[in-house]
Computed example of a mutant assay.
Amino acid sequence: MSQTVDRALRILPLLAEGPANLEQVAGHLQVHKSTALRLLRTLREHGYVYRQQDQRYRLGARLFALAQQAVETLDVREIAHPHLVALNERCGHTVHLAVYEDGEVLYIDKVESRYPVRMYSRIGKPVAITVAAVAKLLLADLPEPERRAVAERLDYPAYTARSTPNAAAFLKELATVRAQGWATDLGGHEESINCVGAPVLGTDGRVVAACSISAPNVVVTAEELLALLPLLRRTAAAISAEYSGNTPPEKAES
């Protein structure tokens, strides 16, 4: 990647944190103000950056439009969304859809809980890959050599006492997930949050996405959340069938 492109791209995450002036941008890039100004002008011309009346810069509307367009072209999200909404209406809890892309697991859709306690997750945000139920489902489907390579290069943060401690434990859990066809995160990322996930399959039977139900334990216990697994798996099966162009199964998956 050229130095100019690299510097321009590094401006965008900075502005995502909030408006910044020329001096702050130059300091972040460790370049002269004239260089930072040249980069900002180029980004501004393309609509990716906007200069406010106070002379600070923020992300431009064009960037948001592109991000939304990119999300909308993910067919699995478009197909899954009505099913996720219906699932949310039935269970009342936060529902997510995630995909594996460029070494990260990202949320591409979210339907908020009807309860006052909300999840901090956001569309486009990477998940905690070593503990999240959706991540386990997506990584468990990788071919064994790739699965092992991914597991061995990951870090294993101790988010809680229940977090996955190392690659060996992660690979063992992925094997279990691969065999049973569903996954959980019971306090592995946050002590108070539990999650159960199910895979969305493509025409070749491979996992193309994963959907999940998440809830704080002040709303439902882990056991109560696990009781929703059949409903979640039916939803995932319906999404899979529509995505693959197949007739949905007549009977619910237990």
Rank of each mutant, 00 (worst) to 15 (best):
Glu78Val: 04
Val220Met: 15
Ser214Tyr: 03
Val127Asp: 11
Asp75Phe: 12
Val5Pro: 03
Ser244Asn: 03
Val208Met: 02
Leu139Ser: 06
Ala80Asp: 00
Leu137Met: 09
Ile239Ala: 03
Ser212Trp: 03
Leu40Cys: 00
Ala98Ser: 15
Ile239Trp: 03
Gly187Trp: 01
Arg58Asp: 07
Ile108Phe: 05
Glu78Ala: 09
Asn217Tyr: 08
Thr94Pro: 00
Thr42Glu: 15
Gln68Leu: 00
Arg118Lys: 15
Leu229Lys: 08
Arg62Gln: 11
Pro145Phe: 04
Cys195Tyr: 06
Leu231Cys: 10
Val150Asn: 04
Leu225Trp: 04
Ala161His: 13
Ala209Leu: 00
Tyr243Val: 06
Ala8Pro: 01
Ala149Met: 09
Glu146Ser: 11
Asp185Leu: 01
Leu74Cys: 10
Val99Cys: 12
Arg90Lys: 15
Glu144Cys: 07
Gly60Leu: 00
Ala237Thr: 01
Arg10Phe: 02
Ser244Met: 06
Arg41His: 10
His96Tyr: 15
Lys33Phe: 08
Val219His: 03
Gly181Asp: 06
Arg56Ala: 06
Ser244Tyr: 02
Tyr159His: 14
Ala128Glu: 15
Ala179Phe: 08
Ile193His: 09
Ala135Ser: 15
Val208Trp: 05
Tyr100Asn: 13
Ala36Leu: 06
His32Lys: 14
Ala65Trp: 00
Tyr120Gln: 10
Pro143Val: 03
Thr35Gly: 04
Val196Trp: 02
Thr35Val: 14
Arg153Gln: 11
Ala149Gly: 04
Met119Tyr: 08
Val150Asp: 01
His93Ile: 05
Leu37Asn: 03
His83Tyr: 05
Arg114Asn: 12
Leu66Cys: 13
Cys195Glu: 05
His189Leu: 10
Phe170Leu: 15
Arg7Phe: 02
Thr235Ile: 06
Thr73Trp: 08
Ala209Thr: 02
Cys211Met: 09
Trp182Asn: 03
Arg162Leu: 11
Gly188Leu: 01
Asn217His: 13
His93Leu: 14
Thr164Ile: 11
Ala151Leu: 09
Ala98Leu: 09
Phe64Ser: 10
Glu146Cys: 02
Ala158Trp: 05
Pro248Lys: 01
Glu253Asp: 13
Arg10Asn: 08
Thr247Trp: 07
Lys110Leu: 14
Gly47Asp: 00
Arg7Asn: 13
Val71Tyr: 05
Glu253Pro: 09
Glu101Pro: 12
Tyr107Thr: 12
Thr184Val: 15
Ala20Val: 05
Glu45His: 12
Ala179Trp: 06
Asp54Thr: 07
Ala252Met: 12
His81Val: 04
Leu40Glu: 04
Tyr100Lys: 14
Val131Gln: 07
Glu191Asp: 11
Gly205Tyr: 02
Asn217Glu: 06
Asp54Leu: 07
Arg77Tyr: 01
Gln55Ile: 03
Thr42Asp: 15
Val134Gly: 00
Arg10Trp: 01
